[in-house]
Design a protein around this nucleic acid. Structure first.
Length: 193
DNA sequence: CCCTGATTCGC
DNA sequence: GCGAATCAGG
C-alpha cells in the first residue's frame, strides 16, 4: 500500500478528528499504526493543533531532551522473531505452581450483585451473552489485574467461573461487562418489564 | 497486559 | 519517503 492522495486525506481527516493512529491504520488497511504515525510526522501534523499556533500549553512543556545516541545500536538479542506457534492439540492443564500466597487477589472489590435480566438494556444483555460464549472461563486463581472479574454462575457450584477477557483499561471488567455493571441511573429507571 | 504517540534509522 | 523497531508513557 502506498500513500495515495485519497489515503492521505483520510489520514488527515481522522487525525484531525482525534482518532488514534491504530484506528486510522485499521480504517485505511494495509498499514500499521507505526506507518500512520510516521506519515503524520512527515506531514508535519504531529501536533493535533491545526492552525499553526500552539493552543496546547502542554506541548511547550513537552520539549524533551534528545540524549544524542552515541554510535552503537543497543541491539539486545535477536532472540525473538517469529514465535512460530506450534499447535498442540492438547489442553495441557498447566499448573503454574502457585508462587507463595501472593496469588491472592488483593483488590477485594465486592463483587457486584448480578443485575436482574430485566434491569439491563437489551443491547448490553445481548453483548454479554455473546461474550460469555467466548469468555476465557478462568478460575479465581487465574484472575489478574487485567482479566475481567465478572463472575458467572453460582459460586457454590463447580461450574463457577470468571469471564477473564481483557479488561477495559482501568475497570475491573471487560467492555461488555462494564456495560452491564455501570448502568446510568437514567437508563435503569423507567425500565419496564 | 492492553494501549497511546514519538523517534530513529536502514531501506 | 517509508515504516519496523524501539522508546516513553498511561
Amino acid at each position: 500500500m502506498s500513500w495515495t492522495e485519497d489515503r492521505v486525506e483520510t489520514l488527515k481527516k481522522m487525525w484531525a478528528e482525534g482518532q488514534s493512529a491504530s484506528q486510522i491504520a485499521k480504517e485505511l488497511g494495509g498499514v500499521t499504526r507505526n506507518a500512520v504515525i510516521g506519515k503524520v510526522h512527515r506531514l508535519g501534523l504531529s501536533n493535533r493543533a491545526g492552525g499553526g499556533s500552539t493552543p496546547n500549553p502542554a506541548v511547550a512543556a513537552k520539549a524533551k531532551e534528545k540524549p544524542a545516541k552515541p554510535a552503537a545500536k543497543p541491539k539486545p538479542a535477536a532472540a525473538e522473531k517469529k514465535p512460530e506457534k506450534t499447535e498442540a492439540a492438547e489442553p495441557a492443564p498447566e499448573r503454574p505452581a502457585i508462587p507463595a500466597r501472593k496469588q491472592i487477589i488483593p483488590a477485594g472489590q465486592p463483587l457486584p450483585p448480578q443485575p436482574s435480566a430485566n434491569e439491563i438494556s437489551p443491547e448490553a444483555l445481548a453483548s454479554v451473552r455473546e461474550v460469555e460464549k467466548t469468555a476465557k472461563r478462568i478460575s479465581l486463581m487465574e484472575l489478574t489485574e487485567r482479566t475481567c472479574k465478572w463472575p458467572i454462575g453460582d459460586p457454590a457450584t463447580p461450574e463457577f467461573w470468571f469471564c477473564g477477557l481483557p479488561v477495559q483499561q482501568g475497570k475491573p471488567y471487560c467492555e461488555a461487562h462494564v456495560g452491564v455493571a455501570f448502568q446510568p441511573m437514567s437508563s435503569r429507571r423507567d425500565r419496564k418489564r
